[in-house]
Amino acid sequence: MWTVSASLIPAMLLSIYVFGLRGLLITLVSMISCMAVEAISQKALGRPVSVSDGSAALTGILMAFVIPPGVPYWLPIVGAVAAIFINKELMGGLGFNIWNPALVGRALLMAAFPVYMTAAWIPPIDWSKSAVDVYISGGLDAVSTATPLQVLKQYGLSAFTQQFGNLSTVYQNFFIGIKPGCIGETSALLILAGGLFMMIRGIITWHIPVSTIATVAVLSWIFGGETWFSGQPLVHVLSGGLMLGAFYMATDYVTSPTQKAAQIVFGIGVGALTLLIRLKGGYPEGVAYSILLMNCLTPSLEEWFRPKRFALPKQAPVAATK
């Protein structure tokens, strides 16, 4: 787990460059509160304390990465209780949770404090101007802004290019990560790098991320435009939390299927639901909810794709440990 956390460090560094120290502080609060909640609840439930395995820390980091940088500092603590205590420890601890803890935290915060979670976006720091002030104040007094997906959803593609520049600039900026958004989901490049690192180390396989991203790309090309087959797939692939979700959250081995075929179905499901919510749903971004919804299906997918030859009587899912 600590290896996974380590692969997120480059994205964290870029986030400090883009949003100031605030992003780092919120990530730290989130990480520490997740570890604390885990330790306290394990003590209270009379289980061995397993904070040092790093899973709670990873949950904390990922949860901070999918919330806006402008939220109050206490917010992640509430999310941590939902993510770790309700979603994980009550269900029997690591290995038994059905839903991805970081995303449960996010979904709960979204439902509980919608104003913070939909409006606390801050624009990237303009380093050519008052960089130092903003850096120190952590972007606190920066005005809130709209995320690319919010602009795209509410005002359409022309307003989108007006605000973020023509498409080639957009692709460049979004790929590197200079855009308003959640703390850690800004840079497609660094997340891709982290994902590749995990694949090389054998922590994740390509099935889920590739099928998720490919589905979003193809479907956004077909349905994303004014007419059919005229969408801008790259806008959808590079915006929002798709990269982070596909590489780090959909691949969580407790809450996603283990069979390869099931993983591809899972990925396609995540991609399709994401685009459904983005284009037709009530929220501008749908990655978190689509992963949570597919998590509901994981136990069934696991069963449907269980190889027939080795069909065994129902048995306990082996808690994955690393």
């Binding site: 919608p114 409006a119 509410q154």
Partner: peptide
């Protein structure tokens, strides 16, 4: 002008 409610522009 009318100031939009936070998070509820629509």
């Amino acid at each position: 002008d009318i100031y939009a409610l936070t998070g509820a522009t629509i």
